[in-house]
Simulated assay, not measured.
Amino acid sequence: MKRKRTISLNSSSITTRSKTRAAAAAAAAKFYLPDDCWESVFKFVINDKSKFKNRRYLNSLSLVSKQFLSITNSLNLSLTIYNGSRPFLRRLFQRFTNLTSLDLTWYDRDLNKLLCQISRFPLNLTTLTSLTCSRVDSLRSGDMCLIADCFPNLQLLDLSYCSYVSEEGILQVLRRCCKLRHLNLANCSKIELHGMNFEVPNLEVLNLSRTSVDDETLYMISQSCRGLLQLLLRSCYVTERGVNYVIENCTQLREINLRGCCKVHASFVASMLLSRPSLREIIVPSLRHFSVTEREFFKRHICLVY
């Protein structure tokens, strides 16, 4: 009798577990959300401008389930490559298929080998529109050609503090990456851009702070980059003549930074505004106390001057 009762209890337990699983499966099916819905939820929850906080949130969500891991992989749009990342590059690019931004700032090995490796991947990197190579001293002319080959749809390129980057390499990128909108060459001390004798129609932001640009450079820019919205010339050896080239020909210019340009006088600001009414922000060569009349003039032209 005891044996029969034990068998009966075991059967009852199995039946109960089966019913529980069936109920759980039914509940899961009832509350199932497709990937695109979860993606919208995650985007709403993670609505934070800090990419570091976003990465932390995505890492936490990816631990919940395989479905969440797959979704968070597709939401990760930026990748920073370190020295130890190179052996895993193929897997990283296969995992994060929607990358739009790549940061090589912390990679201080042979950049040419890294770019050659990336160029041989049978992957679609056309989604990548932003590349940061700030402070990469190993950057050479050949690397710039590889950058243009690997990332033809670049819209933002940051080469700030790249001491040895060549002018010819930069010109190659400008010729071939036709969608480039933002170029940062700050502190590339040898850059002059005298050879930019071709049109760069989509360039909107150009940072040439602390470079070797002069009035000839500004003339070339005024002819080649007429769609410029923002020009940064901090501590550059330019004069009012060169600045005037840009003011006259870059008809959409909204911001210009002249801090530290000792050959440009602050009194030149008023004539800049008269010549280019689109200006909304002017950082003058040196700190100056403007008169009430001058401040009223700037206010009428809706331009912040400081």
Score class of each variant (00 low, 15 high):
residue 56 R to I: 12
residue 83 N to C: 14
residue 59 N to Y: 10
residue 92 L to A: 14
residue 72 T to H: 00
residue 56 R to S: 15
residue 60 S to H: 10
residue 76 N to D: 06
residue 55 R to H: 11
residue 94 Q to V: 10
residue 82 Y to F: 14
residue 84 G to T: 06
residue 114 L to H: 03
residue 60 S to N: 14
residue 86 R to W: 05
residue 63 L to C: 09
residue 71 I to G: 01
residue 99 L to I: 08
residue 55 R to C: 07
residue 66 K to C: 00
residue 91 R to D: 12
residue 86 R to F: 08
residue 66 K to F: 01
residue 79 L to W: 06
residue 86 R to A: 08
residue 108 D to Y: 04
residue 103 D to M: 05
residue 61 L to Q: 08
residue 95 R to I: 00
residue 65 S to P: 02
residue 108 D to I: 07
residue 91 R to I: 04
residue 109 R to W: 06
residue 90 R to K: 15
residue 113 K to A: 12
residue 59 N to K: 10
residue 101 S to N: 10
residue 81 I to G: 01
residue 83 N to E: 15
residue 106 W to A: 12
residue 62 S to C: 04
residue 112 N to G: 09
residue 61 L to I: 14
residue 102 L to H: 09
residue 112 N to R: 15
residue 104 L to F: 09
residue 87 P to Y: 03
residue 87 P to T: 04
residue 67 Q to K: 11
residue 53 K to L: 14
residue 109 R to P: 01
residue 100 T to E: 08
residue 111 L to F: 10
residue 100 T to P: 01
residue 102 L to G: 05
residue 76 N to P: 00
residue 75 L to G: 03
residue 77 L to D: 05
residue 108 D to F: 06
residue 103 D to K: 02
residue 58 L to H: 02
residue 114 L to A: 04
residue 111 L to I: 15
residue 84 G to A: 06
residue 114 L to Q: 05
residue 74 S to I: 02
residue 94 Q to S: 14
residue 77 L to V: 07
residue 59 N to M: 10
residue 80 T to L: 07
residue 99 L to Y: 09
residue 78 S to Q: 09
residue 76 N to E: 08
residue 71 I to H: 00
residue 79 L to H: 01
residue 117 Q to R: 00
residue 69 L to N: 06
residue 102 L to M: 13
residue 113 K to E: 15
residue 85 S to Y: 09
residue 84 G to P: 02
residue 116 C to W: 12
residue 100 T to N: 05
residue 63 L to P: 02
residue 92 L to H: 13
residue 107 Y to M: 14
residue 89 L to V: 02
residue 82 Y to V: 06
residue 76 N to Q: 12
residue 72 T to A: 04
residue 110 D to T: 09
residue 64 V to N: 00
residue 72 T to V: 08
residue 82 Y to M: 09
residue 110 D to N: 15
residue 81 I to E: 11
residue 117 Q to P: 00
residue 56 R to W: 12
residue 94 Q to T: 13
residue 66 K to T: 01
residue 64 V to G: 01
residue 108 D to N: 12
residue 96 F to L: 13
residue 110 D to I: 08
residue 54 N to L: 11
residue 57 Y to P: 04
residue 116 C to M: 13
residue 97 T to D: 07
residue 73 N to M: 03
residue 68 F to I: 03
residue 74 S to F: 06
residue 53 K to V: 15
residue 60 S to E: 14
residue 56 R to A: 15
residue 73 N to G: 01
residue 89 L to M: 11
residue 55 R to W: 08
residue 80 T to V: 09
residue 102 L to W: 12
residue 114 L to R: 01
residue 101 S to Q: 11
residue 87 P to R: 08
residue 100 T to R: 07
residue 114 L to K: 01
residue 99 L to T: 02
residue 76 N to M: 09
residue 110 D to C: 13
residue 65 S to G: 06
residue 91 R to A: 13
residue 95 R to F: 00
residue 111 L to V: 15
residue 54 N to Y: 05
residue 54 N to G: 13
residue 70 S to L: 02
